[in-house]
Structures are given as structure tokens and as C-alpha cells.
Computed example of a mutant assay.
Amino acid sequence: MIDPVFKKIRSASLNKIPICRSGFWSGKSIYTFSYKHKDTFYSLVSITHSFIIYFFSIAMITNCDPSKMENVCDTSSKSYSKTIAAKSLLGDESPHCFPMNGSSFTVGGKISGLTGSGLTLILNHKNTLVIPAGSTEFSFPTQIPIGSNYEVNFATQAEGNFCELANSSGKVSNKNIKDIEIFCKASCVKCIIFITQNGYPANIGKASNFDSSCHSDPNYPGTGNYKAMVVDGISRRASLTANLGDGQIDWVFKASQAYIRPGGVNIETSNANGLFTSSLSTPITTVSSDHWTGLNSDWTSYLDGACLKWTTKATFELGMTGDAYTQDILTLTAGRGLQNCSVNRELVCVEQ
């Protein structure tokens, strides 16, 4: 009797087979039967035969065309489907895609309706890009590594425009980001400031998420786009330096802009940095308020007083609050001091 012996044959050349250049797939080991026999010639023939069949089977399935730079990580490419088929045939459950180290891509998109100058975008809270008036597209020169998160926000709005973002955040996969959209329209001439009737919870996620409450509140004037005067130092910031207005992110007050109450009574005109550094001509409201701000009295962010950047309503966490029934900036921004995050509070809403 001839005893069969199960032999495992490995080929160094098959440990990794390139799949269309953009990724790598680990080849499976080949298993074949040979027999103990005095004549080793037949064993060598069997080994060679198995090797040839394996190699040409893989070649036929993957069929990589060196003239095409398809990406095996791209689910819409032919290389992806061929790789999955080959791995399924061989019972290989290892990851099919290992992106090449060092790959990075640009972040950009389309713009519509931009007529004013001064629009400035910020990428991942640090890289800024000034957009000229009339632009219809943009792209940050800074490239983001594959697999990294990206987020685009407004540093400053354009003169005479109110712009909004869509598809502004995500994760870089295997191509340049081109689907961010910016929609611009004419901004208010004399912009309204109002206090919400209702109080709102602190755990909204981030400062800019309070904006939607301005539009759903019973005191909403009925028209216009509004943002809440609340900061977290990340999604919204008024100033890095006391009363200077530097490093702004999606700030609610525009430079040299006149602001009024819903009934038309003048409140004050902001300075060239989009701040109020002296007293207001008229209080924003006619009754005392208790509203969230996250601000110091000098317009810098109170990072330890923003309910963990507006992510919690725990009773032991605190958030900075103000009172809008005042002409004093200190009272408006931080006059009520640190208050418990578990209590719903009002918002100062500013038309854009």
C-alpha cells in the first residue's frame, strides 16, 4: 500500500499577489496530494502541475491590465469584484484591501450664489482658505491622509452674503473630496436679534447645533436665518484674544453690522471685528433672560464652562450664562455666571 501524505506547498512568489497596484491581497497556500514512492519524478511533476494551474487560475480571475490604474479599494472598480471572486474561490477571508502608505487627497467642492468678498473657510479647525467673490468651486491646498476625518466650516462670512454648507464633513477614502456644497444668498441689511421663549438642553452636541432651535422657537420672527450666540471654541468661536475678534469660526455677528430688535428698535452696530466692546445702545430684550453663552466677558471661549463642549446635561457640570436685559457686555456674555448643565436655558439668536 502507498500511504498518502498531505503536503503543504508554499511559494514565496505567491505570498503576495498585487491586485491592480492600489492594494495587496495575501495569497492562500496550496494543498495537494503526493505519495511516498521510490520514484520522486512523479511527485515533482505533480507539484509543478499544481503550481501552473494555481498561477494561471489567479491570472485569469484577476486579469489585471497594467495600463489601467484601477483601485482594488474602490467598490465600483472591476478590480474589486475580481479580487472578491478570487478570494471566495480560494476560501481566503483575509482583508482584500491594504491602501498604499502615504496616500492623501484634497478637500473641496462647489459654490453657488457668492457675490461678496471675505468668505473664509477653515479645514479641521486650522487650515484657512479665502474664497474670492464670484467663485464657483474651491479646493484646500492641504491634503488629508486616507482614512482621516475632515470637517469644513466658515471662518468668516462674505460681505452681503449668508452662506450655508452641505456635506461638510466625513472621512477620506480613496479619492479627492469634491462633493462639499456652499449655498450663498443675500444677508440681512438690519439684522434682528431675539431671545428664545423656550429653554434648551445643554447636550446638543456642539455650539452650532443650537441654531436650529432659533428657527423652531415661538419667538422666531417668521423669516430670516439665525444662529445662536453660543461658543465651544471648535465649531463656533468669537475670539482667541480678549476683545480682538481673531481666529473666529462661524461667528454670529458680522463686522460693522447694524442690529435691531424684532420691532425695529436699534440695539447697536458691531465693530470692525464683529464684536461689541462698549455698551449697547438698547438692551436686546425688555425682560431678564438666562441664556447659554460659553463665553468669557471679553468674547473668548470659556472652555471649562460649556457643559463639556455642549455634550452633557449632567448636574455636576457647568455652563456659562448671560442676561440680555442689559446694555453691559459683561452681563450679556457672562453676567449670570456658571450654571448647572441639567437645566434648560434660553438662547440669543442673531439674524445672518
Rank of each mutant, 00 (worst) to 15 (best):
T106I: 11
N296P: 02
V189P: 04
F162S: 11
K38N: 12
S103C: 06
P95W: 13
G108N: 02
F41G: 09
T321L: 06
S104D: 12
T300L: 02
L330V: 08
T156F: 08
K68H: 08
K313Q: 13
T32L: 15
K16W: 13
E70F: 05
L240V: 06
T277F: 07
G294F: 01
N71E: 12
G337A: 01
C188T: 03
R345I: 06
D250R: 12
V172H: 12
A314I: 03
S135V: 05
P141V: 12
D304K: 10
V348G: 02
C341I: 01
S135K: 05
L165I: 08
K126V: 12
T312E: 02
S135A: 15
S135I: 08
A228G: 03
L14G: 01
Q248W: 05
D290C: 05
S187C: 07
K206N: 15
S169L: 12
R10V: 14
M60D: 10
D39G: 05
S117V: 07
C73N: 09
G245C: 08
I260C: 04
C191F: 03
K28S: 14
H49R: 09
G224W: 06
F210Q: 04
N344I: 01
N176S: 04
F24L: 12
G27S: 12
Q327E: 13
T333V: 11
S235L: 06
S187A: 14
A255F: 01
N266W: 08
N149S: 15
H291I: 02
S235G: 02
G205P: 03
D211E: 08
S289L: 07
W310E: 04
V230C: 08
K190I: 03
E346C: 06
L275E: 00
G335Y: 00
T196W: 07
D92I: 15
T311F: 02
T286I: 13
T277G: 07
A272R: 11
D290V: 08
S139E: 15
N271L: 03
T285R: 08
P4C: 06
Q257I: 01
S112E: 09
G322R: 01
V107W: 00
Q352Y: 12
Y302R: 05
P141Y: 10
G27W: 03
S235M: 09
T300A: 04
G224N: 07
E70T: 08
V287I: 14
I182G: 03
P18R: 10
Y80G: 07
V252D: 02
H37P: 00
S117L: 02
R236T: 00
E317K: 14
N203P: 01
